[in-house]
């Protein structure tokens, strides 16, 4: 094979490499390539939202218009899903959406690391969302929050099953929320890499090199599709966060 095995291996792109060995109180706190891209995401979002709006122009510049669009997009999502009371969670949902969106988009740049392709990252976000739902729900409504699991107007015979189903659905939320994003990113990047590998392999396979444009076209189309997925998954993550937070604010069906 002409290309080195590492370049063809579709899993290699998810490897984490320590760039800086750090150890805080016995815990591994190394600065890795994933950490580097987390910092890049943070800087990119900050550049857009803080530096881009520093002029506070009445007639916005391009960057400020983009920042305003992001603001209004997430604000309308929160308002439509939760209502006016939900605006207290707007900074949280916004940060989540922007972080995930930028992670997904930056991950599409060749050679970049996709932070959201790590289950631990997406699960941390999902756990944060569900944790917020539980803590806020119990704080705001106390025991009434548990009515979330007891829908009104159900016959007493069915009630135990319904409660069981509600609890299972609640528990599966963080899993589905994290796995959906993680799996989409992982699968998309593996697919891109596999087709990229096809191009390299065909080029190195003599007469078959004539076929190599086919996977190249496929990558081009897939990249466009992955751009859509990158945005869509960030949006899905944000809107599901809103739906779950809505349960914390308005428990009981």
């Amino acid at each position: 094979m002409a290309a080195p095995a590492q370049a063809i291996d579709p899993i290699h792109q998810f490897n984490i490499e320590r760039l800086l060995h750090l150890n805080v109180g016995g815990l591994d706190a190394s600065f890795t390539n994933a950490s580097l891209f987390m910092v890049i995401i943070f800087l990119a979002v900050t550049a857009l939202m803080v530096l881009g709006t520093s002029g506070a122009h009445v007639v916005p510049t391009r960057v400020q218009a983009a920042a305003e669009m992001a603001y209004e997009f997430v604000a309308s999502t929160v308002r439509d899903t939760i209502g006016k009371e939900g605006m207290r969670f707007f900074p949280f949902v916004f940060s989540l959406f922007m972080f995930v969106l930028f992670a997904n988009l930056i991950g599409l740049i060749p050679g970049a690391y996709t932070v959201t392709s790590q289950i631990v990252v997406t699960f941390a976000f999902a756990a944060l969302v569900i944790g917020t739902v539980i803590v806020y729900g119990l704080m705001k409504h106390g025991a009434h929050f548990l009515h979330l699991f007891v829908p009104s107007g159900v016959s007493p015979i069915l009630l135990p099953f319904i409660v069981l189903i509600e609890i299972i659905s609640f528990v599966s939320r963080p899993i589905s929320l994290s796995v959906r994003l993680f799996a989409n990113m992982l699968a998309g990047h593996i697919t891109l890499k596999v087709f990229g590998g096809f191009v390299a392999m065909l080029l190195g396979a003599g007469a078959y090199a004539i076929l190599s444009p086919l996977p190249l076209i496929a990558i081009t189309l897939l990249t466009a599709f992955e751009l859509l997925v990158a945005f869509l998954q960030a949006y899905v993550f944000a809107i599901l966060t809103c739906v779950y937070l809505n349960d914390a604010i308005h428990p009981g069906h």
Binding site: F31, S35, P91, F99, V120
Partner: peptide, 26 residues
């Protein structure tokens, strides 16, 4: 093996992002 450092750096970057967004940008 890298979960601890990932979670730590995620907490740092996301925490900072949340602070900046909620206090300054939004």
């Amino acid at each position: 093996t890298h979960f601890a450092s990932q979670l730590l750096w995620l907490a740092i970057t996301f925490g900072l992002l949340y602070l900046l967004m909620s206090r300054v940008a939004l």
